[in-house]
């Protein structure tokens, strides 16, 4: 169980996070959403212990993070950073093998078991065929899968993912989040991911934490959090929330036209009327 209690982080005079609380049980996948600059990444860094909160604390299995050694923490957390820059030429396998560092004595070479672990992580993220390519030569999506493999090669208890699908195409978005969800279930991980795609969040997350200006606006199931009012409060954008016809989870759609807050009448995608409705919602087939 990973818990954050009333975490407050102040950077200069500006509060980046104010009294954010969060608890993630084993086997649970939590999404953190919110507009740019709302403190999502900072929250992940606080949870990992990279930023010490001015108030509040983070606990793992009931013990504050300060009670763990750097090496112990490194074995608990698998982290996917937002957009790591890797300038040196190392192969994909070398990069993923670095995740085995917290299991080593600090020097020496990786064991056969380490290599097996790195390869199976690469296999999970469908990246094993890149094992001998330079990490600098990969495309954005390939790199993201390799970075996820690196986080998995830690064999973590907690997964912290900062926009793990931002560079992926549709198929890999679904595949990676499915993988993350499955691993979270069968390895009883406490997983937290930051995402901008609210529909992916609605499909995959067990619970959603919504942030704005460092404050927690809502924390609950996707159905509770992803409502038109809340999205308006968080993002300042009108959106239409209905049910996905197959999965039943909330479906969020936006349109160009409507900027009225949701309490001023039902969402209408086409404020201009029926003509606009036809133009906006249907596609003109090639004739």
């Amino acid at each position: 169980m990973l818990e954050a209690r009333d975490v407050t982080v102040v950077c200069g005079a500006r509060p980046v996070l104010s009294e954010v609380s969060l608890a993630v049980a084993p086997g649970e996948l939590v999404a953190v959403i919110g507009p740019n600059g709302s403190g999502k990444t900072t929250l992940l860094r606080v949870l990992r212990g990279l930023v010490l909160p001015q108030r509040g604390e983070v606990r793992w299995q009931g013990k504050p993070l300060a009670h763990f050694s750097p090496r112990e923490l490194a074995r608990i957390f698998g982290v996917v950073p937002q957009d790591p820059k890797i300038g040196f030429r190392m192969t994909v396998l070398e990069y993923v093998l670095q995740a085995r560092f917290p299991y080593s004595n600090g020097f020496g070479f990786e064991s056969e078991a380490d290599i097996r672990c790195a390869l199976s992580a690469l296999r999970l993220t469908r990246a094993v065929e890149f094992r001998d390519r330079w990490i600098t030569e990969l495309s954005g999506g390939e790199r993201q899968r390799v970075i996820l493999a690196r986080a998995l090669a830690v064999e973590p208890r907690v997964l912290l993912l900062d926009e793990p699908t931002s560079n992926l195409d549709l198929r890999f978005q679904v595949e990676m989040l499915t993988l993350i969800r499955e691993l979270t279930r069968c390895r009883a991980l406490s997983s937290i991911f930051v995402a901008h795609d609210l529909n992916l969040v609605a499909e995959f997350a067990d619970r959603v934490l919504m942030l704005r200006d460092g404050r927690s606006l809502a924390f609950g199931s996707p159905e509770e959090v992803l409502t038109e009012e809340r999205l308006w409060h968080a993002f300042g954008t009108r959106s239409l929330v209905d049910r996905h016809p197959v999965s039943g989870s909330p479906r969020i759609t936006i349109s160009r036209g409507d900027v009225r807050p949701p309490w001023q009448g039902p969402a209408s995608f086409h404020p201009g009327g029926a003509d606009d409705a036809e133009r906006g919602s249907v596609e003109i087939a090639p004739s």
Binding site: L73, P84, F88, F101, F107
Partner: peptide, 23 residues
Amino acid sequence: YMQARPLNLLMVGEEEARVLGVE
């Protein structure tokens, strides 16, 4: 030479190295 392995992790980035337990 004793620091070679932590340095490998530092090459990727300081925060990434810290995440993997490098002091």
